[in-house]
């Protein structure tokens, strides 16, 4: 199982575990507030924006150009912003902590 801790905009902490799919799908399965995933994961809507914890960012890695372009025009972007539909659940990211940007 791969574990991800979601910290929501209103301070709630949701620890979610999954085996595959994307981090966005994991958030939806666990009803994480602020993660809507409207477009179903094709990087078109930016409703799954998270800030990866600084210490964990290297595990997740940089966004590709398409995601970067989306983030450029998304509100509240930080140096560790990712659209979590573009982050596959893999052993590499097991145990990371992220903060949900939207409320």
């Amino acid at each position: 199982m791969i574990k991800v801790t979601f910290n929501t905009a209103d301070g709630e902490q949701i620890v979610a575990e999954g085996t595959g799919g994307s981090m966005m799908e994991l958030a939806l399965e666990n009803n994480v507030p602020g993660i809507d995933g409207d477009c179903g994961g094709v990087c078109s809507c930016a409703t799954c924006h998270v800030h990866i914890a600084q210490d964990d960012f290297a595990k997740v890695g940089e966004p590709n150009d398409i995601e970067k372009d989306m983030l450029e025009l998304t509100n509240d972007v930080s140096g560790t912003s990712r659209l979590c539909c573009q982050v596959p659940l893999s052993e590499d990211i097991d145990g990371i902590s992220v903060t949900v940007v939207r409320d």
Partner: peptide, 18 residues
């Protein structure tokens, strides 16, 4: 896989009915 289309618009006025 990555399909950043704007069929429902983009930004604060993106389609409410999407």
């Amino acid at each position: 896989k990555a399909n950043p289309h704007v069929a429902f618009g983009f930004g604060i006025h993106n389609c409410l009915g999407a």
